Amino acid sequence: IALGSNGIRQLLQHELAMSQPVANFVARISYGRRRFSVTELLVDRGSASEFVDWFLKRTELNDELAMLAASPDHYVIQTNANGAQEVIETTGGSPLVGRFMIDYQDLSSLRSPPDPAYPYQAAGVAKAENGLVIGGVRHQFRNEGLGFRAKLTVEFPTMIIPGAVSAHRWHLASEFSNWIEAAFAPLSD
C-alpha cells in the first residue's frame, strides 16, 4: 500500500514484460476457446443482490484497498476512467504475475452461459493491454437459505495449462470469501 500502484507496477515491470507475451500467445493459439475455473460458495448471511451491489460499487468507486485486501495474490486492482478494472495479480498458481483489464460492461465474447437460476451477476470480458481478448469472468449469485450461493467462473484460454485452471479455484474461493466478509462485516456479531 505504501508503494502505491505506480510503485508496484514499477517493481513488477520486468516480470510483466515476460508474462504478457506468453499470455497473449496462449490467448491467440486458443482461437477464442476457453477453459472454465469454477468455484461455488454458500454464504450464511446477506443477500445475493446486496453482495453484487457492494462488489460493483467498490469497483465503480475504485476502492483499491477493498479490492487488494481480499488476497495476497493481488498487486493492483484499479478502475480506470473508462470503467474497466485493471488487475495485476498472480492467477492459477502461476509463478509469474499477470496483467489484464476487465470490462464489466462488455459480455460480448464470454463463453460461459448465464444460468437463469442465478439472477445476479458481475461479468465481463478480460483483455490484455493491447485489446486482445484473453478470457473473462462470469460470477453469478442467487439467494439461498438464510444467505446466498455464489457460482464464480473465470474463463481462461483453452491452451493454458490445466493445472492453472484448477489451482485458480482456490484463488477464487479465497478472494470472494474475503470480499463477502468485508461486505457483510457490519452484520457480524
Rank of each mutant, 00 (worst) to 15 (best):
P119S: 06
R9K: 11
L107G: 08
G98R: 00
I1W: 01
I160S: 13
E86W: 10
G163S: 08
R58F: 04
I88D: 04
A122E: 03
L110C: 11
W170G: 10
L42R: 14
Q78M: 04
R33I: 05
G46L: 11
T91V: 13
H14R: 09
E144C: 02
G131E: 08
E50V: 04
Y75N: 12
G163H: 03
N178F: 06
N62P: 08
A128D: 06
T91W: 04
L3Y: 10
I1F: 04
M18I: 13
Q140T: 05
L107V: 11
L107W: 11
H139D: 11
G147Y: 03
Q85L: 08
D53F: 06
G93Q: 03
E144W: 01
E60M: 04
D53G: 05
R149C: 07
P113N: 05
L61D: 07
I161H: 07
S49I: 06
L96G: 02
F100S: 03
N80V: 10
P119M: 10
Y104T: 04
H171Y: 11
G46R: 00
A17M: 09
E129K: 15
A2G: 13
N143C: 10
Q10G: 03
Y31G: 06
S109T: 15
P119V: 08
L12R: 00
R111I: 03
L132C: 05
D106P: 06
G136N: 04
G83E: 08
G7I: 03
F184Q: 01
L152I: 09
A69Q: 09
L56N: 09
L65K: 09
V87W: 01
S109G: 12
N6E: 15
V125N: 11
A81C: 04
N62M: 07
G98D: 13
T79C: 13
Y104P: 02
L132E: 08
G163P: 04
L16R: 00
P72G: 07
L12D: 02
G124F: 00
E86K: 12
V97K: 00
S109R: 15
L3T: 09
P95G: 07
I102G: 00
Q10W: 13
W170C: 11
A27N: 05
G4R: 14
P21Y: 02
V154H: 02
A123H: 02
D103Y: 06
Q140D: 09
A185S: 10
N80F: 14
